[in-house]
Design a protein around this nucleic acid. Structure first.
Length: 195
DNA sequence: CGACCGATTGACT
DNA sequence: GTCAATCGGTCGG
């Protein structure tokens, strides 16, 4: 299997967001491989979007968002959580797509260990149904900020194809500004989608 | 420098 | 349903 090419990421965030549904996120930690199918995302559109970290221009924190597409932007929030974004668009644009939820595929036992879950068989939907949960399960922290998705630590592969009719759209979650914009996309009926 | 608040979660009433 | 946890970015003085 092969990484998605740079050209997948250098398009506008809204297009990349919809195309990310059904793709497989892969994370390698030493010899361990974790993977999952993306089922929920949100687009954050640079300087034009009041909810985006890039809205107030380039800073040390959001620098990564201004790279060309295909890098990981990880930020720390609420004093205890990390969220992972896929940087999109061309250099200096400042767009990204937040990975909000995914369906675990490989390495479920390791994800449970990372999340502090008991060693039971199978996965429960609370394992990865939220942006900070995905990061915790996949071991994505501050040092993963800036990871090149064309490398072999964190990357994406083509996965299931999602038909247009099974993609749901809504306003974004957990923000106060730009709430009305329909920039959240999810796979309808998938139990891993966050509530 | 101090106050305020956030792309969240989990525990508790 | 409500609320604390906990810290770094941002803005006002």
């Amino acid at each position: 299997m092969k990484n998605l090419p740079r050209s997948f990421y250098t398009r506008p965030a809204l297009l990349v967001a919809k195309d990310l549904l059904g793709k497989t996120l892969v994370r390698k930690i030493g010899r361990v491989t974790l993977s999952g199918t993306i089922v929920e995302v949100e687009a954050y559109c640079g300087a034009k979007d009041p909810a985006s970290h890039a809205y107030r221009g380039r800073t040390k924190r959001n620098e990564m968002m201004f790279r060309e597409g295909g890098y990981l932007y990880v930020y720390f929030t609420y004093g205890m959580h990390f969220c992972a974004n896929v940087v999109t668009g061309k250099n200096n644009v400042g767009e990204a797509v937040l990975i909000r939820a995914l369906e675990p595929v490989c390495g479920i036992e390791v994800m449970k260990k990372n999340r502090g879950f008991a060693k039971t068989v199978g996965a429960t939907h609370t394992l990865t149904n939220g942006p900070a949960k995905v990061c915790q399960a996949f071991g994505i922290e501050r040092k993963e900020n800036g990871t090149d998705l064309l490398g072999n630590k964190v990357y994406l592969m083509a996965g299931e194809s999602i038909t247009k009719s099974s993609i749901g759209t809504s306003g974004r979650i957990g923000i106060s500004r730009g709430k009305e914009k329909k920039r959240r996309f999810f796979v309808k009926g998938n139990k891993w989608v966050s509530g």
